[in-house]
């Protein structure tokens, strides 16, 4: 069993209007030192033992569906978890 954590964020070159609004809000709350905020998505995937190439599969699903490579980057962490 594997637990996979996937993080999807907008690419650096892409303006993140939501992050910008949050950054401005933090700044008006007095947190002047928060220079930039980027908002993204966090997903948890649970793989069973039938998947042999977990990393290859994770990359594949990230590119095919979980992220849109035109505007988003992804990174992931794979953790082995004990069978229930």
């Amino acid at each position: 069993m594997y637990k996979v954590k996937v993080y999807v964020t907008l690419r650096e070159s892409v303006l993140d209007p939501q992050g910008k609004a949050v950054q401005q809000s933090l700044s008006s709350l007095g947190y002047q030192g928060v220079e930039d905020v980027r908002i993204g998505k966090y997903m948890e995937l649970q793989f069973d033992d039938s998947v042999t190439d977990v990393e290859g599969t994770v990359k594949e699903v990230c590119e095919k569906l979980l992220s849109n490579p035109v505007i988003e980057d992804y990174r992931y962490e794979i953790e082995e978890s004990a069978n229930q």
């Binding site: 892409v14 209007p17 609004a21 849109n68 035109v70 505007i71």
Partner: peptide
């Protein structure tokens, strides 16, 4: 078609 959609600039 090429490209992607982002949220409207004014959210």
């Amino acid at each position: 078609l090429p490209g992607a959609m982002l949220r409207n600039k004014n959210l």
